[in-house]
Simulated assay, not measured.
Amino acid sequence: MNEIDRLYRYKSLLTSRHAVASEELMATLGISIATLKRDMARLRETLSLPVVYDRLAGGYRLAPGNTRRELPGMWLTPQELVALVTLQHLLSELAPGLLGHKLAPLRERLAHLLHDIDIDSLGLAQRMRVVHAGQRRLPPQAFDTVASATLQRKRLWLRHFNRATGQRVEREVSPQQLVHYRDNWYLDAWCHLREDLRSFSVDALERCEMLTDTPAVDVPAEQLKRAMQAGYGIFSGPPVARARLRFTPQRARWVSGEQWHPDQSAQVEPDGSYVLELPYADDRELLGDILRHGPDCEVVHPPELRQKVAEALRKAAEQYAQA
């Protein structure tokens, strides 16, 4: 029986009777008196279980009045503790403020538990680095409000700056999910102005208020997936075309290991080039991804997308020719 299973068994034994003798505990669990004493110390000091030794009753029992309040919610293995601290560190890097106030009481407890297994929580965090590329400045208050409303299922009033049109629109939305995409945060929400699903860049929210008295409208999961994940990248909507891209053999060494879209298909041609097919609803983001590969990527189909890429490359070449 491993240590975690044994500690759970203590919980069962000590809550089912008034007192349990040391001899009975050792016989039931197959342990020595030294192990019993170590376990009792851990139950008290690390897991906050109010175990006392009752000399009159001749055994261990739980202190009266504290049993329900102080029983720990979860007991973790060393590997699970490391995983939890790792996730906490990554969350703090990717989303400052998200659940921070709720996790604060747990942080000290985790550090104490890690110390017991000879792992430094601060040192663990210093061994991980999150590199941000193209991350836009995120207003902490806006993010906290959006995250809270999404988790609490409340509506939001927001003023959104549309960078494509330069316009500002005020609207009421029902948040559905937060999306972390290419180092930036987006909110998928039901827009009560347009009566449809929309995606908002959180860093473009100039004002944001949670309507605490108004519950959010929930969109069925399948409908949300069809609307927000069928297109290419962050752009929503049903696919309007399917792109066929050919990468050079040299570039194929990288691209063949990438997922550009959940519904993509691919094949390696005899000369080593890599052909990738994927659907898209809006070609703006797809154009950027194609252009960053320069001459190592050719659009085979459709003709409209091929022409747009050719025009963008022509204009870029003209700018450098003028220089």
Score class of each variant (00 low, 15 high):
V309Q: 04
H18A: 15
A147V: 08
R6K: 12
Y274M: 08
G257F: 00
V85D: 08
T212P: 00
Y8D: 07
L90R: 07
D271L: 14
H261M: 11
Q167D: 07
A241D: 15
R242M: 10
A63E: 14
P220A: 10
A133L: 10
L305S: 07
A252L: 06
I119H: 03
S48V: 09
H132P: 02
F161P: 00
V52N: 05
K154Y: 03
F247L: 05
F247G: 04
L47H: 15
G166E: 01
G233E: 06
I33R: 15
V85T: 05
Q229S: 13
W75P: 00
T15E: 15
G288M: 04
E209G: 01
V146A: 12
R244M: 06
E3S: 10
A266V: 07
P78C: 02
R244F: 00
V217D: 06
E70V: 01
S148Q: 14
S265H: 13
P249C: 06
L71Q: 09
V299D: 01
D183G: 04
R251F: 01
V275F: 12
A243S: 01
L106S: 11
T212F: 01
F161E: 06
K225C: 14
A83T: 07
A310Y: 08
L156G: 11
L138Q: 11
H192K: 04
Q177F: 02
A317P: 07
A230Q: 15
Y320Q: 13
R9Y: 13
E172C: 06
R159N: 11
L56Y: 10
D296R: 03
Q250G: 01
P140T: 04
P139V: 08
H89W: 05
V268G: 10
P50W: 09
H101L: 05
R198H: 13
R69I: 05
A204Y: 01
E311I: 10
T150S: 10
G231P: 12
L156K: 13
D39L: 11
L158R: 04
W185I: 02
Q319C: 09
A227L: 12
E172I: 11
D271P: 15
T145F: 07
A133N: 01
A230F: 08
P295N: 06
R198V: 04
H160M: 08
G231E: 10
R314S: 13
L278M: 12
S48F: 15
L287K: 09
C297S: 08
G65W: 02
L62W: 04
S92W: 05
G59S: 07
D39Q: 11
H89E: 09
K102P: 00
A312K: 08
R194T: 08
A57L: 13
P270N: 10
G294V: 08
Q223W: 05
R246S: 06
Q176E: 08
Q126R: 05
L98S: 08
E93A: 14
R242C: 13
R242Q: 14
P175R: 00
I234K: 02
H301E: 14
G257D: 07
E45V: 01
L47M: 14
N184Q: 05
Y186P: 00
P72A: 10
V130E: 03
A204G: 00
G272Y: 14
H293A: 13
Y320L: 15
H132D: 09
Q250S: 11
R246G: 02
Q307G: 07
S256N: 04
E269Y: 10
Q319R: 15
